[in-house]
Each structure stands twice: as C-alpha cells, then as structure tokens.
Design a protein around this nucleic acid. Structure first.
Lengths: 247, 247
DNA sequence: TCAAAAGTGTTTGTATTACACCCATGT
DNA sequence: ACATGGGTGTAATACAAACACTTTTGA
C-alpha cells in the first residue's frame, strides 16, 4: 500500500489506502443525545440496558448503521422504531468516538447526534426508556455520559448565536414560557424582558398578533410569538474580527 | 433484534443493536484538512490521486483507520507517514461523512479532522503533494471539496472566540505578522492595532520583552509577542445570554 | 531631517444587561 | 382598589472598530 522511501518516509500510491483487496472494516453505530425541556429541567432521553456489558446501566438510544442509509437517516430511523420519537425539530451531528476500547465486545465506532424535541409534545416512549435531567445524570454505559455532556455543551453554545430555540419551544409561545426554556437549557436565569429584545433585534422571533388570556391570578395577557425560521440559522456572527465596513 | 410491537412500533432489546452474531461492518477512513498560511494565502494540503476513481484529481490526505488506533492517532500517523507532516500545532475533529454513495468502490465512512501547521515550518512533502490556496481550490475527488470548505468555516469561526491563532503563528511574532496571518485566514483585513488590544485584553498573547530590529527601510522596531497558551482555549464566552452578575 | 513602521489615545457605534416604571387583566 | 404578571423606557456597561497622533528607528 505504502512504499517505504529511502529517507524513511513512505510515499502514497494515490489510492487513499482504500483499494486494497481486504480493507479493514469496523462496526459503526449512530447514537443520539435527544433533549427536551420537561417541567423546568433540560432532560435527555435514555434507555436501560437489559444485557451485559453494562447491564442495567442507562445508555443513549441508537444502534447499528444500516447498509443503505447515511448516519442521519439511521439515527432518525432508530429513534422512530426503537423509542417512538418522531418529533425531532432539529438534528445535527455532534462527534465520532473511536477509542478501540470503548466497546469491550467488538471494535465499534459511534457517531453521536444532537436531537431536540419541542416542549409541547410528549412522545410515548417504551417502558425501559425515560427522560433524565441533565443536571443529575445517572451512571451511564460506555462513553455515553461524556457524549451527553458534550451534547449539552453544544446546545448551550448554540443558544447564544443561533436560533436553535425554535427546536425547544412549541410553535407559539409567550415570552415568559420561552425564557423558561432558555433558563432550563442554559442552567441560569434568563430575563424575559431582555430575551425578547435580543431575539427581536436579531429577527429570530415575531409576534403572531394573538395573545393568551391571563390566568386566575390576573395579570396582563401575554402576547404570542413564533420563530420566523424553523431551521437552524446563525443569527449572530461574532462581534469580533468582523470584516471592515464596506465603504 | 427489534421485536415488532402490537401498535406497530418495535421495542429495543437493550443490547444497543450491537451484540448480534454478525454485526454489519464498514470501511472507515480518516481525512485531514491541514491548513498553513503560506505567503499571504491560507493553503490546504492536498495530494494527487494516481488511480481511479478520480484519477488525477486532488484529494485530502488520509486513509484507512487501523485496528489498534483511534481516529486522532490514525490521522496523525498517516500525515507523518504519507506526507511527512509532523508539525501540527492543533488537531480537532471536524465531522463524519456517511453518504453510501460517497465512494463508488466500497461503503466507506470518513471522519475529517482540522489540522493546523504554524507558518514558520515548511514540511517537505512528497512530489505528488502540494499546498493549494483555499481561495481557489482545484477540482477535488469524492466529497473532499466540501469537507475542505467546512474546515475553513470552522477555522474562521474559531479565530473569533478562541486562541487558535497560536497554531497558525510561529512561537514568537510581531503584531504585523500576526495580523497578516489573521487576514489571510479570515479573508479580510485585520488591523494590527486593534488585534493587539483584543488579544491582550483576552489574555491570549503577551509580550516576550524582546523586539526585532527594523529593516533597511527604517521604522520602529516591533515588539515580539507569544501566545500564553499553546492549546485550545475558549477566551470569549458569548456576550449574550450570559449568567447574571454574581451579587 | 524625513520616511517608514510600530504603538497609544480617543472617539464613536452598538450590543446587552439591569432596573425602574407603566399597562392590562382578574378578583 | 389592588395584586399579578406582561411590557416599555432608559441608564450603565462593555467591547471593538476607526482614526489621529506619537514614538522609534534607518537612510
């Protein structure tokens, strides 16, 4: 494949190492870190393993990649088939784990995805599957705990400079609801009054024109908002090192 | 593996789809988008394919994952062995491509990495390998052109909120050199005077105390700076949606 | 002394948080 | 009326781009 070179290097033959008669093959699985705001907690969907290794431990949903599908299609399929989750408002690739020892049975690579389910749906998940607050994760199988933390880090970062909020919120919402979602996801208070102005200025949200009546305890009726886009948009290019002004 | 359920769903058996007797296997390769500032251009390292498919087209360096190594080790090994690049100041995972049709020969997944070589080294690369300005990429094999663009997007974003600059610059540099690197990488002018203050305020760089004599054309001698950290640090948490003040 | 390059001071614009105050509704 | 949220106005802060000015050197 590679030809040893006089000076100790090797020289590529230009076939990218992939056309040998017996390319090495590996198992490959897709995993999902699926988040939903439930109550006032950011929760992740986990299922309990029935068999060793890690019998009884919680694991991220997912499984083997099929022969005719790409990883995105695979994780959508598995979430639908295995845990009956079909309501992902957003799905993006997170990272690929490749430690040879991560699965003691076979060499298996895992590509993790970040999925988001809006707060207004409640998928019926199987018996051995449940939503766990990310603030207090249980013991988890394999390297899944660190993958889950990595998913939360990504979500938190993207809430600051994209419109991912659309995937946590229902189609229409009041600003206090939305600030609740943001607070739960970020893990700190987010003032509704400022959130409103930030998202309006950035053009992420708009008023629907309707409002919800106030509850029994009174109070002014809250206006209903919606996200303008329901696909991921970067709305806040970094303030720093931006191109100089046009003229 | 999955047990069909009365309502049409399937129920997981808890073994993560991975303990069947014949798990499906795939080829897996690691690819690298290696950048270096050369002259005043951000360049990417490519090699020319000698064999079909895509014979004669330029491709990202990389190749098959070995049985005992993880992806990061694999791409480091291949860069060292195949193109004699051992001077990566930074390496991070980019993304995994899984389109079943991306390689017409076998089903092959590819995990791409972003690698950075400081401007002061000049690795001797093989005959069929070369540095290409990212502003004008040649025709490329497979999905490699889109991977290269994705790498550049990542680098540009990270220059704004991390200290990745350390991996483009030599150990010591003047501010005008550094602003040149930033300008080349970002594709727009970066004023040395403001860059200096931004990076100093963020604590990314510090003065070495030494300076370089001015050239034949005169001018004040330039102070030498260095990056305080030579590993990736996020120095600018997003200004938005940050936690409320402590007291 | 003059040109060239580096570095400092200062102004301006803008994004964002904090907080006081006003508005609409139910009891 | 008044309590209870929702919503607006406004000040304070911070960051960074722009640009004029000063400093240090070589010829």
């Amino acid at each position: 494949m590679d030809i040893p070179h006089a000076n100790g290097r090797t020289v590529p033959t230009g076939e990218g190492g992939l056309s040998g008669p017996h390319p090495r093959k590996f198992g490959h699985e897709a995993l999902a870190v699926v988040f939903q705001i439930r109550g006032d907690q950011l929760c992740v969907l986990l299922w309990r393993r029935a068999l060793p290794p890690w019998e009884g431990a919680w694991a991220l949903p997912g499984g083997r990649l099929g022969g005719e599908e790409d990883l995105g299609a695979s994780i959508r399929r598995q979430l639908a088939q295995k845990v009956d989750v079909r309501d992902l408002a957003h799905l993006e690739q997170l990272e690929t784990r490749s430690d040879p020892e991560r699965d003691p049975r076979h060499r298996t690579l895992a590509t993790a995805y970040l999925g988001l389910v809006p707060a207004d749906v409640d998928p019926i998940v199987p018996e051995d599957t449940g939503w766990h607050p990310t603030a207090d994760l249980p013991a988890m199988a394999f390297d899944h705990a660190s993958i889950a933390r990595s998913g939360r880090r990504r979500l938190r970062a993207k809430l600051g400079y994209t419109n991912v909020g659309f995937a946590l919120a229902p189609p229409e919402f009041t600003m206090s609801q939305l600030s609740g979602y943001y607070s739960s996801a970020l893990g700190h208070d987010v003032a509704a009054t400022n959130l409103r102005r930030v998202l309006l200025r950035r053009g992420q949200i708009e008023e629907t024109g309707r409002s919800v009546p106030s509850g029994r305890s009174g109070g002014r009726p809250a206006a209903l908002f919606r996200f303008r886009d329901r696909s991921l948009q970067v709305t806040d290019e970094f303030a720093v090192l931006r191109p100089p002004n046009a003229p």
